[in-house]
Design a protein around this nucleic acid. Structure first.
Lengths: 156, 156
DNA sequence: GTGCGAATACTCGGATACCGCGTGTCCGAGTAAGTGAGG
DNA sequence: CCTCACTTACTCGGACACGCGGTATCCGAGTATTCGCAC
C-alpha cells in the first residue's frame, strides 16, 4: 500500500482537530508534518477528486474538510489514494491450464472467490471505522492533541 | 499484491488433486499452467522455505505437498510469497508533526491501530480458509477437475 | 469618505523526470537413476 | 545372477538484468486580496 495513505490520514485528522471554516494551505500542512510539499499536493488533489476535501484558490486559500469526520470512513481514504482495485486480481490462469474446457469455465474461479472474501472482510473493517473514531481513540491517549493542533494550523 | 500468489494457489491446488507421493517437476507444472518456468521456480522455492512444499532433486525429482490440504491456510500461502509485512506500515510521521512531545508519544499511533484492525480482519479471513475448502468449492462447480488434473500431472 | 479597477501575490492543478521493487531469466552445484562390468 | 562403481542426465538453488508503478518535483492557469485613484 502506498505511504500516501498514511499522510492523508494524519492530514485529515489535523483538519478535523482544526475544525475551522477557513482552509489551510498545503505549505502549512506539509511544514507541520515535515513532508515534501509538492508531493503532498498530489495526494490532497486525489482527496478532492474523491469528495473528501474542498479546495480554495487564491490568497488565504487551501483545503478544508468537505464532510463531517463521522461521515468519512477509512475505506473512503484508502480508495481515494490507492484506487478502488482489490489487492488480489484474478488473471484467470486456469483458462490456460491443462485440461481446461474449450469455451472457458462457466462459474467463478474458486481461488478468486476465496481471496475476494478476505478482501471483503478488510473493506468491511475499514468501512466500519470513521475519522471520528480514530480521533476519539487518539484523544483518549493524548488529550492535549486537539488544542496543540488547533494552535499549529488553526486561526491565529 | 504480487501475482505470484495466484500462481502458487493454482499450482498448490493442482498438487492437491494429483494426490501422489511422487513429486512433480517445475517444467510440467509450468507447461500445464502456461507460465514461465524459471520464474515459477522462484515462487516454489519460497513455498519450500515456508514449509508448504517438499523439494526432491535428481532424476524424477520435483515438488510435493509437505502437509495435508486441510492444514494449509490461504494465509500461509500469502505469507510465503508476499512476506509477513502488513500492507500498511506506520512510519510514525506524527513524531515529526508540529507540537509533538519531545520524548516521543508513549502510546501507539491511533491511525496505525485502526489500520491494523482491518489488516487483522483480512488475515483472519485468510486463516479461516484452507486449500481443502477451496478444493471443495471448485469441485462443486466442476466435478471433472480432479480426474483431469490427475491425468495431466499424476502417475502416467 | 467611498466606490471602482487594475496590479499583485498567493493558491491549486496537471504535466514532467527519477528510482526502487517486482518481474523475468540464466547458469552452476548437487543428486538420484541408469548402465555396464566384474565377481 | 547379484553387486558395485561409474557415467549420465535431470533436478533444484541462488545470482544476474529489465520494466513498470510509485515517488518526487516543477512550472503554468486561476482567483481573492489589496492598493491606488477618481469621484
Amino acid at each position: 500500500m502506498g505511504q500516501g495513505v498514511e499522510w492523508a490520514m494524519h492530514v485529515l485528522l489535523s483538519l478535523v482537530w482544526v475544525d475551522d471554516d477557513r482552509p489551510v494551505s498545503t505549505a502549512r500542512l506539509a511544514a507541520g508534518h515535515d513532508l515534501p510539499q509538492a508531493y503532498l499536493t498530489k495526494q490532497l488533489q486525489a482527496l478532492v477528486r474523491a469528495g473528501l476535501l474542498e479546495s480554495f484558490a487564491g490568497a488565504h486559500g487551501g483545503f478544508r474538510l468537505a464532510r463531517a469526520a463521522g461521515d468519512i470512513t477509512l475505506m473512503d481514504v484508502v480508495t481515494a489514494i490507492d484506487g478502488p482495485e482489490p489487492a488480489f486480481r484474478c488473471t484467470e490462469i486456469r483458462e490456460r491450464a491443462a485440461g481446461a474446457p474449450r469455451g472457458g469455465f462457466r462459474d467463478a474461479c474458486a481461488v478468486d472467490a476465496s481471496m475476494r472474501r478476505a478482501d471483503l472482510a478488510w473493506r468491511t473493517a475499514l468501512q466500519a471505522q470513521t475519522l471520528a473514531d480514530v480521533k476519539a481513540e487518539a484523544e483518549l491517549h493524548a488529550p492535549e492533541i486537539p488544542g496543540v493542533t488547533r494552535g499549529a494550523y488553526g486561526r491565529v
